[in-house]
Design a protein around this nucleic acid. Structure first.
Length: 725
DNA sequence: TCCAAAGCTTTTTTT
DNA sequence: AAGCTTTGGA
């Protein structure tokens, strides 16, 4: 008898679930039930007695995906899920590393550094090595090191031939020093987590053996996003039994800039001989036009594994994908706002709409517009809670309390609030710490004992050190939440913000309270720190229906009834930097990103571009994205002002060769900005323009005006874009 | 040691 | 346009 959880699958999904032995690659197109396959497969392994829950290693990329899978698996197996090896690459690697830290010179309570700490530490290393940071920015060095880490290269494994593109071949030297510093601090950065674990599995056969015995089955989500270390890690773990199932979609590979290698998925059959490939091609999400538009676009990419998405079930043709041409980014924001409002009036839920942008800065214009219209929204990603200064400071206090050797944390708050411990005092502490090879905190203590420093800073330092001792002792007695509150109070940190008269101060205090509330959910201060280091999101408030604003990257894996895709302009999307740095590969990745965007939509997809946009505070003109021309004409509908769709004559770029036949003139409500009464426009007339401000008409030709603007000088503009003033 | 002003970069995307 | 870092003065 077939269990009903299998009955609910279509034949391709079922094949993906029931193929349990040997390597399996599931090519899962957008909206084809990927998560369902993963979770059902997990359940099936348990139901058939192939494995116990803890014998399955399930790897995801995002915490969100891990959380979702955990919930669904929990619902299926109806057992506690806490012992599961289910999480992100980084969380799972951290867990393994905490069990075997000695092989890479760490202790099991090592600190996980965030990007900020990483940068500061590397900067110190670079300065210690007299790197000319004007000529060779530390950011670049960080990139080089990260790329090595992404490829599984410890300093010992980097060959001199690979150390050619930074500071006269000195990158390797800095890399080695940086890793030494990390070890001395008992710390690991993000890249280290997978790097170290892979190194351990490579060099410690008995550790590897242990994990082979433990993990009978491996499930990997978003395989197209794995980088080389992650791939090596998986391959090592899968060597024993070869029961590895990777789910992914080469058309949704959008993380090459983070070291992801699309080759990993393209090469799967070679890496795992005898691998079976199952394609999930029935899409249950989008209407026919949306699917066809996405498919038509992605067909312009080469070197795909090849999949044909078809509508599963009985999807309707739906409405055409809309392509709107707007005058500028402000009008684009206005238009999107109006459409959102209109859709809501027609009964659609805001929670089922999303505005997906290429780059974070684009959200701002929409936010402003939505605020004006009084429409509730939520920015996903964006400035994160744990990245705010006050939260970082508080966390640094906590870290230095739990982990006295955490120099970076100590350094951050020594003089925060001001205690008169500036550069001079700091330099002395560092000198002593380096000389004796001890943590900063101990060096500071020694300085106090030895009556070094001037009396005032010394007294301040002594008080701080005594406080830390007291707080540390309090952890066992009073509990971590009480101690945390004491720390913020007694250190004067709260007081500092209370005294602060800037408008943000109140919000910061509020955030600190929120931080303490969040900490109460964790058993210890250390546990909380680990959570924050790895998860870095506190998505507490999902309450209320809000329209989502986020980047295309952040939108992967989500779906909405109505999706807005603004900013489809050359330079922005495809992004200039992607083109400059990675050429055709970059362009293809941008195209995949566009594909991801369109396939997020269930029923309505509205793409737009603006002829003018403010970049770095200056207005510049932009031509429509080439992706617009790659959308199959029979599935789209063009709207908006012709003027905007036309290539601006003054842009240095080559004009688009074809304009699709289907151009629909804007309905009245879409005509940009307040129209002027007929006949009012004559030379001498004073006018106002949204962007250029006030000016006087010097000439009229058809619908074009020559205007001498007071601020912007002489411009030729369309009459629709000015109003009489 | 601290503060204010000036100048300079930034904006691709994230665990 | 804004945020950050550097610089110069008190």
């Amino acid at each position: 008898m077939t269990p009903d959880y299998l009955e609910r699958l279509n034949s391709e999904q079922r094949e993906a679930v029931e193929t349990l032995d040997g390597p399996l690659l599931v090519l899962a197109g957008a909206g084809t039930g990927k998560t369902r396959v993963l979770t059902t497969r997990f359940a099936h392994l348990l139901m058939t007695g192939r494995a116990q829950p803890h014998q399955v290693l399930s790897v995801t990329f995002t915490n969100k995906a891990a959380r979702e899978m955990r919930e669904r698996v929990g619902a299926i197996i109806q057992r506690p899920v806490d012992g599961l090896w289910l999480g992100t690459f980084h969380a799972l690697a951290a867990r393994m590393l905490r069990r075997n830290p000695e092989f890479v010179g760490l202790k099991s309570d090592f600190t996980i550094l965030d990007t900020d700490d990483q940068a500061r530490l590397l900067k110190q290393v670079a300065e210690a090595g007299n790197l000319d940071t004007k000529r060779w920015p530390v950011n670049g060095l960080m990139g080089v090191i990260q790329r090595w880490k992404d490829r599984g290269l410890t300093p010992e494994r980097v060959t001199p031939a690979e150390d050619t593109d930074f500071a006269n071949n000195r990158a390797l030297e800095f890399y080695a020093n940086y890793q030494d510093r990390l070890r001395a601090l008992n710390a690991a950065d993000f890249g280290d987590l997978t790097l170290h674990v892979t190194e351990i599995l490579r060099t410690q056969p008995d550790v590897l053996e242990r994990y082979h015995r433990l993990f009978r089955y491996i499930l990997v989500d978003e395989y197209q996003d794995t980088n080389l270390v992650q791939y090596l890690w998986l391959r090592l773990l899968a060597q024993g039994h070869r029961n590895i199932c990777c789910v992914g979609d080469d058309d949704q590979s959008i993380y090459s800039w983070r070291g992801a290698e699309i080759e990993n998925i393209l090469r799967f059959e070679k890496d795992f001989p005898g691998a079976k490939i199952v394609r999930l091609e029935s899409n249950y999400r989008s209407t026919q036009h949306i699917l066809a538009a996405a498919s038509g676009l992605i067909a312009h990419n080469e070197g795909r594994l090849g999949k044909t998405l078809r509508t599963g079930g009985n999807a309707a043709a739906g409405e055409l994908v809309k392509v709107l041409s707007l005058w500028d980014s402000e009008e684009e924001a206005r238009m999107v706002g109006e459409r959102v409002e209109g859709a809501r009036r027609a009964g659609e839920s805001l929670g089922e709409m999303a505005i997906l942008v290429r780059a974070g800065f684009q959200t701002r214009a929409f936010e402003e517009r939505l605020i004006t219209l009084g429409l509730p929204y939520r920015v996903v990603g964006g400035a994160k809670f744990y990245e705010r200064a006050e939260i970082r400071d508080a966390m640094a206090y906590f870290r230095a309390t739990v982990q006295p050797a955490d120099d970076l944390a100590f350094e951050r708050i020594v003089n925060q609030p001001k205690r008169g411990l500036g550069d001079t005092a700091m330099r002395e502490m560092q000198a002593l710490a380096r000389a004796r090879g001890i943590p900063l905190l101990l060096a500071a203590d020694a300085l106090c004992q030895e009556a070094a420093l001037r009396p005032k800073p010394r007294a301040a330092l002594r008080e701080l050190l005594e406080s830390f001792t007291r707080w540390r002792a309090g952890l066992d007695r009073e509990g971590h939440v009480v101690v945390a509150a004491n720390i913020l109070e007694e250190s004067g940190y709260i007081e500092m913000w209370k005294q602060d008269r800037t408008p943000e101060a109140a919000g910061r205090l509020e955030n600190l309270k929120e931080l303490l509330r969040a900490m109460a959910d964790y058993p210890s201060m250390g546990g909380f720190l680990e959570h924050v280091a790895l998860v870095m999101d506190n998505d507490s408030d999902a309450e209320g229906e809000r329209i989502c604003l986020m980047t295309l990257h952040a939108a992967k894996g989500l779906e909405f009834d109505r999706v807005f895709l603004p900013g489809w302009e050359e330079g922005l999307f495809p992004h200039q930097r992607a083109l400059d740095e990675s050429g055709t590969r970059g362009l293809e990745e941008e195209r995949r990103l566009a594909y991801v965007g369109i396939t997020r939509a269930r029923r309505h997809c509205i793409i737009s571009h603006a002829a003018n946009r403010r970049i770095y505070g200056n207005w510049s003109s932009a031509i429509p994205s080439r992706f617009l021309d790659e959308l199959p004409a029979e599935h789209i509908e063009r709207q908006g002002s012709q003027a905007a769709a036309r290539t601006p004559a003054f842009s240095g770029q080559f004009p688009l060769t074809t304009r699709p036949a289907r151009v629909i003139e804007a309905p009245a409500w879409e005509v940009p900005t307040r129209p002027v009464r007929a006949g009012a426009l004559q030379p001498g007339q004073r006018v106002f323009h949204q962007k250029f401000g006030y000016g006087r008409i010097t000439g009229v030709e058809d619908d074009k005006l020559d205007v001498e603007f007071e601020k912007a000088g002489h411009k030729r503009v369309l009459d629709r874009f000015v109003e009489s003033a």
